[in-house]
């Protein structure tokens, strides 16, 4: 690791951290119900959600499994299920 003077560090290096290791539950998206409204994306603390082709896609590399997206989805399109290790 490079030591910059003054303990000043480069931007955005947190992206290497696989915080997905933290989780017990993972949100599974019901693509029929999801209309891509994006509210889950705005409520996600970990920037795991992207709206692609008007559907919600969850990034398992970062998702800590907090469950906010599932709780807040107005169409109940997300459900928390154990694991989700495969979703990366």
């Amino acid at each position: 690791m490079k030591l910059n003077i003054g303990c000043i560090t480069e931007a955005g290096l947190s992206k290497k951290n696989r915080t997905g290791y933290w989780r017990y539950f993972f949100p599974i998206v019901d693509k029929e119900k999801c209309n891509g409204c994006g509210i889950c994306e705005l409520f996600c603390p970990d920037s795991c959600i992207q709206i692609k082709d008007k559907k919600c896609v969850v990034n398992g590399y970062y998702c800590k499994g907090c469950g906010i997206c599932a709780r807040e989805c107005p169409r109940a399109a997300l459900t928390m299920q154990p694991g989700g290790e495969e979703a990366e």
Binding site: G12, S14, K15, K16, T19, P45, S47, G60, Y61
Partner: peptide, 23 residues
């Protein structure tokens, strides 16, 4: 799945607790 989340200017992979309101 990595990539610059430029829309946020605040990248994932941080150490906030799950469900952190501040994050």
């Amino acid at each position: 799945m990595e990539g610059k989340d430029r829309k946020n200017n605040f990248a994932p992979g941080h150490n906030a607790c799950p469900g952190c309101g501040a994050a």
